[in-house]
Computed example of a mutant assay.
Amino acid sequence: MKKKFIPLLVVGTALIAGCNQEKATNVGSAPAATATPAVDKADAVAVVNGQYIAKSTLETLEKEIAERSHGQTFPKEKLVEELIQRELLVQDATQKQLDKSPELVAQLEAAKKALLTQADLQNFIKANPVTDAEIKAEYDSKVAAEKGTEYKARHILVKTETEAKKLITELDKGADFAKLANKNSLDAKESQNGGDLGWFSAAQMVAPFSEAVAALEKGKYTKEPVKTQFGFHVILKEDSRPVTPPPLEAVKEQLTPFLQRKKVQEMIETLRKQAKVEILVPLTDETPKAETAPAEPATPTAEEAPAAAEPAKAIEKAPAAAEEKPATPAAEPAPAAPAETKK
């Protein structure tokens, strides 16, 4: 029967290392200091030119395939044949002394360091698990303690201040806000949602917008246009409510990896402080020589000069149980805090 390689979604080098040898042969075996433990025939799935392939190697292969292919499995016959073919290639490369080439030696050393790094981190996490008490403390200090207000508002976004003032005049005469938004707003012409922004926190909007909303009384609209980098807004505040933090169980799965990373970072910082380190290369590039400025630099006209964007007021916030806010030109998402959840 003709054998073929099968495309496996696994890292071959990690599995090749598991092809344990029962005894050294004349095909260039590894030094005794790094040789793999001997494998008994009873614990092997195959023997290739006197080299035994351990059952544990097959088990590892099966596990990695299942993880990487979302539960898909392959016939054991094909998996064993794959390991045999890999062992044949290892033996052939060793016989040709490819394992002694400077390039491969450097790659093997880099792979060894990467594996040791992962092993050390996994060992630390296993020895220092995140406790329920730590999760509760993080929740109480960063999530449950978060105080704030959420707002429900509508807005009409236009390009110029003149357009915005005309709309305010129409509102003063009793015009319907939602209808004006559907007709004029750059944010509602196509969606026809009346400029509805749903519920949002101040941190989710650029500063001028959120400040204007917070200053408004319920049911009132801005009497002056609000300028942001997106244009000019007329804003109607419909309601507000206190922020309700999510329950502990809803954010526990997100707090756990955050606390793990925090523990790891503290461990690494401790190692760094205890180590004697000398940096031997410059950490910054040389400053390039300044170019000679023209005698009379051209001054851009008002039309040519780009408008400076007003930065959003970005603050970290804890997870909130408010409704999902529809994306709008006025919205500027704030950076997620480690414990943030999907609203």
Results as ranks from 00 to 15, higher is better:
residue 103 E to S: 07
residue 43 D to P: 04
residue 84 I to N: 03
residue 48 V to T: 02
residue 64 E to F: 10
residue 59 E to M: 08
residue 159 K to F: 10
residue 115 L to F: 08
residue 90 V to N: 06
residue 137 A to C: 05
residue 109 E to Y: 12
residue 76 K to R: 15
residue 134 E to S: 03
residue 56 S to Y: 06
residue 91 Q to S: 04
residue 155 H to V: 02
residue 69 S to F: 11
residue 132 D to G: 06
residue 66 A to R: 14
residue 132 D to L: 12
residue 110 A to N: 12
residue 145 A to C: 05
residue 88 L to N: 05
residue 95 Q to F: 14
residue 42 A to V: 00
residue 62 E to D: 05
residue 114 A to G: 06
residue 144 A to S: 10
residue 148 G to I: 15
residue 156 I to A: 06
residue 85 Q to L: 14
residue 79 L to W: 08
residue 156 I to E: 05
residue 134 E to P: 02
residue 147 K to A: 09
residue 69 S to I: 03
residue 114 A to S: 11
residue 132 D to C: 05
residue 61 L to D: 01
residue 134 E to V: 06
residue 146 E to F: 13
residue 72 Q to R: 07
residue 56 S to E: 10
residue 94 T to M: 13
residue 72 Q to F: 09
residue 65 I to K: 01
residue 57 T to M: 10
residue 55 K to C: 02
residue 134 E to N: 02
residue 151 Y to M: 07
residue 150 E to R: 13
residue 147 K to W: 03
residue 121 L to S: 09
residue 128 N to I: 01
residue 112 K to Y: 14
residue 134 E to H: 05
residue 150 E to K: 14
residue 156 I to Q: 06
residue 122 Q to K: 09
residue 155 H to T: 07
residue 121 L to K: 08
residue 115 L to P: 01
residue 127 A to L: 12
residue 101 S to V: 04
residue 58 L to A: 01
residue 80 V to Q: 02
residue 123 N to T: 07
residue 95 Q to R: 08
residue 120 D to A: 14
residue 134 E to R: 02
residue 43 D to Q: 12
residue 133 A to H: 11
residue 66 A to Y: 05
residue 147 K to Y: 03
residue 56 S to H: 07
residue 72 Q to H: 08
residue 68 R to P: 03
residue 43 D to M: 08
residue 41 K to M: 11
residue 110 A to I: 02
residue 127 A to G: 04
residue 57 T to L: 13
residue 43 D to G: 04
residue 136 K to N: 09
residue 137 A to L: 10
residue 40 D to L: 13
residue 131 T to F: 04
residue 145 A to Y: 08
residue 75 P to G: 01
residue 42 A to I: 00
residue 54 A to H: 09
residue 119 A to N: 04
residue 49 N to S: 08
residue 111 A to P: 03
residue 120 D to Y: 14
residue 49 N to A: 05
residue 150 E to L: 12
residue 45 V to Y: 00
residue 107 Q to P: 00
residue 147 K to M: 06
residue 97 Q to S: 12
residue 49 N to D: 03
residue 149 T to W: 13
residue 124 F to N: 02
residue 67 E to F: 13
residue 69 S to Y: 11
residue 89 L to C: 03
residue 121 L to E: 15
residue 117 T to H: 13
residue 105 V to L: 13
residue 50 G to P: 04
residue 41 K to H: 10
residue 67 E to Q: 15
residue 54 A to M: 06
residue 77 E to H: 14
residue 129 P to E: 07
residue 146 E to D: 10
residue 159 K to D: 14
residue 81 E to A: 00
residue 89 L to V: 00
residue 106 A to P: 03
residue 125 I to C: 02
residue 138 E to V: 05
residue 114 A to I: 09
residue 57 T to R: 04
residue 62 E to A: 04
residue 56 S to L: 05
residue 89 L to M: 11
residue 94 T to W: 09
residue 110 A to S: 12
residue 88 L to R: 02
residue 53 I to M: 01
residue 74 F to D: 01
residue 95 Q to D: 13
residue 61 L to S: 07
residue 86 R to F: 04
residue 153 A to G: 06
residue 147 K to P: 02
residue 65 I to H: 02
residue 63 K to Q: 12
residue 51 Q to V: 14
residue 157 L to P: 09
residue 106 A to E: 13
residue 74 F to T: 00
residue 50 G to H: 01
residue 124 F to T: 03
residue 86 R to P: 01
residue 79 L to E: 10
residue 127 A to I: 05
residue 82 E to C: 08
